[in-house]
Amino acid sequence: MSEFIIELKNVSRYFGSVIALQDINMQVKLGEVHCLLGDNGAGKSTLIKTLAGVHKPSEGEFLYEGKPMTLTSPRQALDLGIATVYQDLALVSLMSVTRNFFMGRELTKGWGPFKYFDTQTANKIAVAGLAEMGIEVRDPEQAIGTMSGGERQCLAIARAIHFGAKVLILDEPTAALGVKQSANVLKVVAKAKARGLAVILITHNVHHAYPVADRFTLLNRGQSLGTFLKADVTREEVLEMMAGGQELADLESELAEFQRADSADNDGGNHALDAGQAATNSMQKAANG
């Protein structure tokens, strides 16, 4: 068996004349969090859809546990243990925690036409599965709609883990979340890693990625800028390499320039100075995530 559970070798994907991905090389290891970074339009979505069996690579090789493989459907990927948690999470907000947890894969008991959904055992499993991820659910019959975005994300991850995922692909899990909820989700990611799963984390927020990731693959305009071990790069270097890094730095220096010009020009008054400072502050905040 190979050292890596998933390996991509020179994978390219074209949509007509558009090159969505070109010569991507990537290795995913069990027990590691592999972070996929890139700005909008860098090809992150195409790459994860290729891993999840939605798209077939136009060129190149996809190896699963060292064996070349062609995924024909998301179902096949799921059967292999590659589970993807998309941004819409595939949860129904009017349904209860348990009903969502087992949706499509209900736990049944009984025989023939009298087979029934064993809600009591299912409740216990759902509560235990969530507790393992650090989410306390008092009432598994409560509707998902009452849960916060972070809790829903964790539920979707716990569900994927319970149903035997070996590779967990998370698409922007912290995109719509606040600071505390993001931290909870990242904790769950760390727990999944501790259980020996391979996690592929897609994000464009370095500050969320850096604390949990072991490896980074950076994408820019459909091409890989390389894969780096965490030990080899600093947060700032990663940020720098992302398309946004350089531009944010440029913006910052431009704003500093603007501010200097303002303070030199005393006639400009305090009002303009304040505005410039406020803009700089908000930019710094944005850069810090």
Binding site: Y86, L89, A90, G104
Partner: peptide
């Protein structure tokens, strides 16, 4: 009532009406 609340098919009924796209994505 038994089918709706106590069987897999009942869960699929709720899922299909609650969010058909989400239900399809998990194989309902």
């Amino acid at each position: 009532s038994w089918v709706l609340f106590k069987t897999s098919f009942g869960n699929w009924i709720f899922a299909a009406g609650g969010d058909a796209k989400a239900a399809k994505n998990v194989g309902v």
